[in-house]
Design a protein around this nucleic acid. Sequence first.
RNA 1: GCACUCAUAGCUCAGCUGGAUAGAGCAUCGGUUUGCGGUACCGAAGGUCUCAGGUUCGAAUCCUGAUGGGUGUACCA
Length: 565
Amino acid sequence: MKLKSQINQVIKEAFSKAGIEHEPMSVSEATKAEFGDYQFNGAMALSKKLGKNPREIATEILNNLDFTGLLAKAEIAGPGFINLWLNPLWIASQCKVAAKDSRLGVGKRETPIKVVVDYSGPNMSKQMHVGHLRSTIIGDTLANLLTFLGDEVIRQNHIGDWGTQFGMLIAYLEEMGEDGSVSLKDLEQFYKDAKGRFDADADFADKAREYVVKIQSGDQHCLNLWQKFIDISLGHCEDVYDKLCVKLTREDVKAESFYNEDLPQVIEDLISQNLLKESDGAQCVFLEGEEIPVIVQKGDGGYLYATTDLAALRYRANVLGAKRISYVVDARQAAHFKQVFKVAKESGFVAEDVKLEHIAFGTMMDKGGKPFKTRDGGTVKLIDLLDEAVVKAKETINDKDNYSKEEVEALAKIIGIGAVKYADLAINRESNYIFNWDKMLSFEGNTSLYMQYAYARIQSIFRRFDGEIIGDIIIGDALEHRLSVMLLRFEDVLYRAAVDAAPNQITTYLYELATLFMRFYEQNPILKEGVDEETKMSRLQLADLTAKTIKQGLDILGIQVVDKL
RNA sequence: GCACUCAUAGCUCAGCUGGAUAGAGCAUCGGUUUGCGGUACCGAAGGUCUCAGGUUCGAAUCCUGAUGGGUGUACCA
């Protein structure tokens, strides 16, 4: 239900009838319940243009509003606000439609586009750490969201699988022989051991350097070892993705090395575009208004990540055919992306109509507001963090005796992982985010547990009720009214969140919805004695649609629900 | 130095294209006739939206400057 645009349409018609030849601004949600459901603030803005006082203009608009459809009432308030009340009968019928629809009334985009979402991007020489968390879950949410709205989403995991350290790592893997894959379980340790050998043994160090050259020149033996190493390392990542309920698979992997062959061509093409200049021995693109050039080839002939990114950009635009390419990467790389995007456009690698965007996010901080580290200052492995979340989640389960060991385990996983993800997604992605176990695992406030609890609570209603739900939705009081309107807003929220790539708009909405439901449920009994059949049926349907909306919303965030908590 | 970014209640955060008396949660205080899941709900208190100007009928939101924090600044990714 594109609620807002339907209301806008009514306003637009009123404009036309009133003979106002301006495009009306969009209505917005009423700031307070007493101001109705929506408000139109455009009369004040028109005052100067039309040379009339705003209340006069508002009156003209109001007199031409159509009250035979979705609007029930409108009032002029203050300097010229038009407060709008939706027709309860209309709301009820729309909720009914949504409840019956598998998509809850959320339409698919009329003109879907191909979108590449680049996220996660772990480095194969190291284990995933907390620094990868935000990219991974924000990116996954964006991909889920756009998929749900009907776009053709191509997930891209741009893993780091190339560079000098791999010579060392595969030389060490070869030396370990069969045991290599075993000790690789702890990549961190493996890296340290390899580095130890590298520093201590000159022969080994030579071999490592030799291997780098050999990989790059396509030596089969070394490439096999390299491939083995990548496979194992990627397996670790997949364990994390699995735990996180993130949908990345091997099909989504397009490693850095994938673009190797195109790199010389990137340079060639930049030369033929006259964009390249040599500076201090390096090949650079100097952009207007930028102090620092984009270096695409080092003095020694090596390529840089800007080169790879350019190759990736044109592959995504031209081969994959993407019209929107979204990079979910740490905010610290803003300058890099700004420059690379500019080069991509100026060189014609990427057509003008392709939207390139850096979905930047802030840093994860500890309780004290400092970057998140272990006690001894090391990086926190992502898998350890997730395991800890599951352990802590177990403590929140009240009656463990009612569940089998496996059930507790499964439940703890859903709660713990959901808490970690939700806490992150609920923050405006651009600001830094303070990680706090107690807060995220609380039932109170805007948390996944509150949402899961609300869902489970509704499910328990349906466990107690067995029968067929028939009849209409009847909006009987102010809370039912507000809840219903909130339910109809779902589509607007999702589309807005997709434009802004802002998961927190979804969490905010879900929290408001769940809160509103709790209030409604507190005040309006459903299965208690004395509730007449018609009212019961109506409220059951509202409860059902609320639960479905929460579930669908959380599903987009990659968070599961359970029938019992 | 330059560039980018942030500054909202004691704490953690919302606040969409400028709109009415700036909103939540936590913490604090008080309340809810056995409560369909009370891990809930209701209420109170809590603010110079860092500061100073400007634009506007109207500014937390836009512009300029100041202060304070964060980040980035040519051959790592």
